[in-house]
Design a protein around this nucleic acid. Structure first.
Lengths: 125, 125
DNA sequence: GGATTGTTATAATATTTCTATAACATGATG
DNA sequence: CATCATGTTATAGAAATATTATAACAATCC
């Protein structure tokens, strides 16, 4: 389990955890059906509280990235048919691209970034 | 001043404020040299505390979007030569694109979003 | 001089985040 | 059946962050 937590970051631990796992799914380090470590196990590995991990898993469940069943724990299960995905993505892009645009980041530079990032996502999409 | 604050959002008020202003700059509703409302004025308009607005302005100053001088208040002044802009942008893109990628958003769909967004940014970049 | 500006200080409250224990029902394992 | 590990839930507290409330200050504009 390669999960990096930055205790000096201003980002909440449970969000860092969530993000790492989503990144892990996108980069195929986690695949549909894979089981995540138990909340207690992962908490111990990282050195944080069980509930913090649980919160991350709960968010991932609500966002449709994992299914959690008794005994098996959290299992990667991606809900690929989300209605608001595109609109949500656009909303998030709008603000972070605004920052770039103010600093003269061109559309082509953004394209290049997208390409680099999607390469890590392996697929040919 | 067209600033929309969502009091039901889970996003901090001062961050919503910051984002709206950055968006305003990107979409040319605010231009280099324009003055922002005084902290007291804007606070009253929105119905929040002066310090919350002040915090937003302080963040904008630190991020290089405004200059603040005595008496004039906050003035749009964009530092376009930021070293870490691209790397920072990539880091932010990585996670939100991961979310999209997991839900089968193709690179072409992302391109299309970028195009739509950059159109609002007016320029030909 | 008076009004308005950002700035600073101090404090109180509310919310969020993280931790700490503990108990529970469930299901796998032996 | 007994044991053990699982997520879940409850409760509580600590710590950090966000928001509000007053108040005062120096600078600057009119």
């Amino acid at each position: 389990m390669i999960i990096e937590i930055d205790f000096n970051s201003d980002e909440a631990l449970y969000l860092q955890l969530r993000n790492q796992i989503i990144l892990g799914i996108a980069t195929s380090r986690f695949r549909e059906g894979d089981g995540l470590p138990s909340v207690r196990q992962l908490a111990e590995d990282i050195g944080i509280n069980m509930h913090t991990v649980n919160k991350a898993y709960t968010v991932l469940k609500q966002e449709g990235f994992v299914r959690v069943d008794r005994r098996k724990g959290a299992v990667i299960a991606i809900d690929r048919e989300r209605a608001d995905t595109l609109e949500e993505l656009k909303k998030e892009l709008r603000i972070i691209l605004a920052k770039g645009s103010c600093r003269n980041i061109s559309k082509q530079e953004v394209y290049a970034l997208i390409d680099e990032i999607y390469e890590d996502y392996g697929g040919v999409n």
